[in-house]
Amino acid sequence: MRRLGSREWLAIGTLVAAIATAGSLYFSEILGLVPCDLCWYQRVFMYPLVLVLGIAAFEDRPEIAPTALAFAIPGAMIAAYHSAIQRVGTGACTVGGGCTSIQYELLGLSIPNMALLAFVLVAITMFAAGRSPI
């Protein structure tokens, strides 16, 4: 079985970021859910990853990994905090209501849980891309 190269890992990271971005747009534009403040911050860190990783995958540039991690790690931290305050039930936001409300769940995962999963998957693909043969 052939090991994945850096280009493939970058492409997988791009796909994860693109699905997360499309999902967030679906929730707000199609389902009409209003993002809270923490959701907006998560979007700020996820959306650029589609472009950054897409270009890096096209050019096969695994050295982009530190830049991508500079988006993925803070995004994951915000999503983890958001997930935690949803479960605890305390915390406040202004736009779109409280960050503690669970507006949508899929397979038991709330929107910030899904964002956390996406950020972690992007981070994993970046570590793999950096360690893969070109």
Rank of each mutant, 00 (worst) to 15 (best):
E105A: 07
A56W: 00
P74W: 09
I55C: 02
A17Q: 09
L53E: 03
I78E: 05
I78L: 11
L69Q: 08
T21R: 06
V44Q: 09
S28P: 06
M126W: 02
C39V: 05
W40H: 14
G98K: 09
L117A: 15
M1E: 13
L107N: 06
L31S: 06
G32V: 09
G91E: 11
L69D: 04
I124K: 09
L10R: 05
L109N: 03
R131T: 05
F45N: 08
A17W: 02
Y41P: 01
E59C: 06
I64L: 01
D60G: 00
E63P: 00
Q103F: 07
Y41C: 11
A128L: 15
I102L: 05
L69G: 06
Q42E: 15
A17L: 05
F45V: 04
T67M: 12
R87Q: 14
A20H: 12
I64C: 06
N113P: 10
S110G: 05
A79T: 08
V50S: 00
I30Y: 14
M1P: 14
W40V: 14
V120P: 03
A17H: 04
V44G: 11
D37C: 04
I134W: 09
G91D: 11
A92T: 14
M46V: 09
A11P: 12
A79E: 12
P133D: 14
C99R: 03
E59H: 04
L4W: 12
R87I: 06
Y81L: 15
E63G: 07
V120I: 14
S101K: 15
T94V: 14
L38R: 11
C93A: 11
S24E: 15
P66V: 02
A128C: 13
I73N: 00
S101N: 15
L15I: 15
I134L: 13
I124E: 09
A18L: 13
S6M: 01
F71H: 05
C36I: 07
G97T: 09
V88I: 15
H82E: 11
Y81W: 15
P48C: 02
I85V: 15
G97A: 10
L51G: 13
A129L: 01
T90C: 04
G97S: 07
P74K: 10
I19P: 04
F127V: 14
